[in-house]
Design a protein around this nucleic acid. Structure first.
Lengths: 338, 338
DNA sequence: GCCGATCGTCGAAGCGCTTCGACGACGAGG
DNA sequence: CCTCGTCGTCGAAGCGCTTCGACGATCGGC
């Protein structure tokens, strides 16, 4: 492996000149630059990351903390990760992958040992224990999610409250007045994962504003969970004509169940799903859905981290507006049913 | 951030002594060690990763190259990643996540700039262009997959040929003689992804050995793809009594289709799937399946990398034996059908 | 035509750690 | 009792890079 000194010798300049060619931090004459670049190319020089980090206190690495335990929502997590890695690369950064279950210790480890310049976390909980730890780090962090006390930490996410509102507005606009929410699994609520809370809050608010009759229930995974959830909803409110589903896993078994029990979608029951576009269209009936824009959110998170790193201003709370796209699972309800 | 010098001063020793306490490379008296450790704890000292890498030429980081483009098999990829990260941590290593689509350049970048000690790649193709590049790196690599020319590079994977053999043996043992293979999507074959090839080869060999009548077809994603695939299989061989499905995505639509066309599983058609355990049991009928042991494979890959790193011997090709677990999708065929 | 600013380059001082050789102390073996 | 080997520690020399201050050269302004 050639070093910067080898390059300097080959090009007949000093090492610092090579460094300035590389970083562009000082003007270098065109000829010198050309000679240096030629030498770099010829020798196949690549700066040593560790040396660079040591001298410059920059690693060009971002930590991404993902809930890798195969929980729920695997595809969404994957989309976030993809977006983050891709965006990071576009800023000439790499991504160090941490698992959420290393907890606070993992964050501190990589931060204290200066392995990363910034951290991006996903799957935040309402009173996430990691938040206070993050505040103590010298590296900035960006959250994908919106825990309760996030002052001073940048947060990026879909506006789940608005999403719920939009789902209900859409259904109400189609004449639906009795609506059930099939929520995430109880485990998600138990962890107080922030998106679940925010969606539910938005749902209840909008429900009141629009003067709808609504019921909500979490939904355990699997066909059995869906069956229970639906039964609960029906028991608490009869004449439900529409369902909002904020639970990717439940979608498929739910459709199966409705089909099996002779409730046609959308003729007997309308559905608005909250899920990535591709899962909405992978269903036998293409679902009217509110997209979870994982790609945008991931990209935005990286962008925010970059701004933070070079000291530019950032919006500390950035909630992306939801967008509902109509497909085949909602139907105008006839006045007689209202 | 305290440095090793601060610790040394606080403990009244030289920096090198602190280093030896940390690394254990030289004997240190119990008292000195205690003093040093106390100082470390008190100051909250964490060695600077870059400095360490520079001085020791070890980064304690592994590169993991994953196909992050949301392709097929997302859950499996996630399981691999989880296993790799977890295993790496257990060896005190971290994981740098690269996307496959950075190709050769990405590997060279992280290797040449000494960001990682070793590389783990997944989703290998038969004549993967990255293999020659890997050979030139100073860091060792471990492949999850088995490309055609892998001499000198460690490979780890499920033995897909044996898996195919086992599936057919199981079905043959239940009296099935006419069997169809629902393969991965044509895109997977086109890329000559190694597991697809190996499974197919094993399937054909076993089919001949067991004197079965078999047909095979790739299967495009989506319900339409499944319909076409099944139609093709039926057209080429009538009286099919069993299906081997080596395509996670296809499983669900396939069951739907069979159901819709009145072919009962397992009464009319038996199924052996190749997929992670949890997807096999997530189906309405619990499928007899051959597990894709992502966790074991990922862990083994890391283990292999570690052995390579400290110069121990490794088996250069390690194919894990498949294990078929019986569930509810296979049925003994009555002699009248044979 | 002189002065100060700007340009382009160099040298040297680190960044924080590991590791090698050296060296005193001490116990064991002859 | 002397020597040799081992133990425990230290000092110094890097590892490969960035960055700061310095300095000659060049240039525009008056």
């Amino acid at each position: 492996m050639p070093t910067i000194n080898d390059v300097a010798k080959a090009a007949g300049v000093s090492p610092s000149t090579v460094s300035y060619v590389l970083s562009g931090r000082r003007p270098i004459s065109a000829e010198t630059r050309a000679r240096v670049q030629a030498a770099i190319a010829e020798l196949g020089f690549h700066p040593h990351a560790g040396a660079r980090a040591l001298a410059s206190s920059k690693t060009n690495v971002l930590a991404l903390v993902a809930p890798l335990r195969v929980d729920v929502n695997v595809p969404v997590i994957m989309q976030f990760a993809t977006a983050v890695v891709t965006a990071a690369r576009s800023y000439n950064h790499d991504v160090l992958l941490l698992t959420k279950d290393e907890g606070t210790a993992g964050l501190e480890r990589v931060a204290h040992s200066t392995m990363v310049d910034a951290l991006i976390l996903m799957d935040l909980e309402r009173d996430d224990l990691r938040i206070p730890a993050l505040r103590k780090l010298k590296q900035p962090s960006v959250l994908i999610g919106l825990p309760s006390d996030h002052t001073g930490i940048a947060c990026v996410d879909l506006d789940f409250a608005a999403a719920a509102r939009e789902a209900l507005t859409h259904l109400a606009g189609h004449g639906h007045r009795r609506i059930g929410l099939v929520g995430p699994s109880p485990a998600v609520y138990r962890r107080q994962t922030t998106y679940a809370d925010r969606f539910l809050a938005g749902f209840l608010e909008a429900s009141a504003e629009l003067e709808l009759r609504t019921v909500t229930h979490p939904c355990e995974p699997g066909a059995a969970g869906v069956r229970t959830c639906l039964a609960d909803l029906d028991a608490e409110l009869d004449g439900i004509t529409a369902l909002v589903v904020h639970n990717e896993e439940a979608l498929r078994p739910l459709l199966d169940l409705l089909h099996a029990t002779g409730r046609r979608v959308p003729d007997d029951v309308s559905i608005v799903a909250v899920c990535p576009r591709d899962v909405a269209t992978a269903m036998p009936i293409h679902l009217t859905s509110i997209d979870i824009p994982a790609h945008d959110v991931g990209t935005l998170a990286v962008e925010t981290a970059m701004r933070l790193l070079d000291g530019r201003r950032v919006e500390y709370t950035r909630l992306l507006a939801p967008s509902l796209v109509e497909r085949d699972s909602c139907r105008e309800i006839s006045t007689s049913h209202r």
